[in-house]
Design a protein around this nucleic acid. Structure first.
Lengths: 216, 216
DNA sequence: CCTACCGATCGGTAGG
DNA sequence: CCTACCGATCGGTAGG
């Protein structure tokens, strides 16, 4: 795992330390020591500490909003959309644990305008999942009517993954994502018969798993 | 809402500010200014800043472990235990939002031994929920076999509540707890027939809701 | 409960 | 990328 450049090494150390000790709990001197340069050298790669935080958070928010957009684009069927959304959600948070922690707990240390941007993006992410659940409920695929709370729950479940996931554990991120897709389908109360009867995109990815009778 | 004493006012301000800006992001001077005393006066009520953090976290962990113990004691039936566990979980986290945030994100700023205590308590909490799910699965009430991940998911869902809940919102904590109990029963795939057939504690609290056919 | 202060550390910069 | 340093702020204490 060769460090390609100081910029890279600094970015990686920043994510690791901000995630562990928080933005305020990490000094420029801590970062410099971790990378093996002088404190002043950090400022060759950034204009301020807050800029480092913003870089991490804005990239992360962009990533997950991209995942959400791809989930909505994958099919006209809310079942397929939910499956892809949840898969992306869990896999991203498992593979970007530090970024997830930072994005969720450290945005209060951004300047006011940036804090507002992040707040709006979080809102947009939750609302895009909520929209999937709403459409599925309208079509009669998802019997669960509390779409707002269901949406919050599914988002929170994924954030939980970012807290305990270890790539060295018994399950890969892929396997965990599959389990969480199953949890999601149960939580929204997928009606497999209703879905099989009127799916607008027959044969979409996961349609078989979503309509086949469940193993006892 | 009269402040009964400075000690009380300091404790409340500490929870509020630690939850919002983090342990390292709040200075003794911030706390003093919030309460309206001099910085030095804070030390009439505590021996150190870390002691203030420990007081909040240890009390909170004790509270939720007590909730978990009461859930296991309420009945011999895992369905009743899960219902009570989830109700307590959601209601406590809705009513102690600041403490929940602090307990979940600020324990890294405790001394090593205290950090270990909190780590063990978090483990114990998750394992007590996991034990309920395991017993329910063995008895054939809960069809979901991924009890570890289901347990993590239910804990994370509750932590989500502590992030967005407002007592001024459309739903009371009680109402939200009921919805989340429903989510939990769906996520573990409660088999209502199996439960009605062999519940070891017929007539336990919630048994009716847990066995009655679901409204369409 | 206060004023006044301790040494240490902070984010950031000057100058090379 | 470095050494050396700036003013500000930190947790905590002395002395009353």
């Amino acid at each position: 795992m060769a460090r390609r450049s100081s910029a890279d090494a600094i970015e990686r150390a920043t994510v690791r330390l901000f995630a562990k000790y928080g933005f305020v709990g990490v000094s420029i001197r801590d970062l410099a020591a971790e990378v093996g340069v002088s404190p002043a050298a950090i400022y060759n790669h950034t204009s301020s500490k807050e800029e480092m935080l913003w870089k991490i958070i804005s990239r992360t928010m962009g990533d997950i909003l991209g995942n959400a957009a791809r989930a909505e684009a994958v099919s006209a069927c809310p079942v397929a959309q939910l499956e892809v959304f949840m898969t992306n959600h869990v896999k991203y948070l498992a593979h970007h644990r530090g970024e997830a922690r930072i994005g969720n707990t450290q945005w209060r240390h951004l300047t006011d305008e940036r804090m507002q941007v992040v707040h709006d993006q979080r809102d947009q992410y939750a609302r895009s999942l909520e929209a999937i659940l709403s459409r599925g409920h309208s079509k009669g695929y998802f019997l669960q009517g509390s779409v707002k709370f269901a949406s919050f729950s599914l988002v929170a479940m994924g954030l939980g993954v970012s807290q305990w996931f270890r790539s060295t554990g018994d399950h890969s991120a892929e396997e965990i994502a599959q389990i969480y897709v199953e949890f999601a389908m149960d939580l929204v109360r997928l009606d497999r018969d209703a879905h099989a009867d009127s799916c607008p995109d027959l044969g979409h990815p996961g349609a078989e798993a979503a309509t086949a009778p469940r193993p006892a």
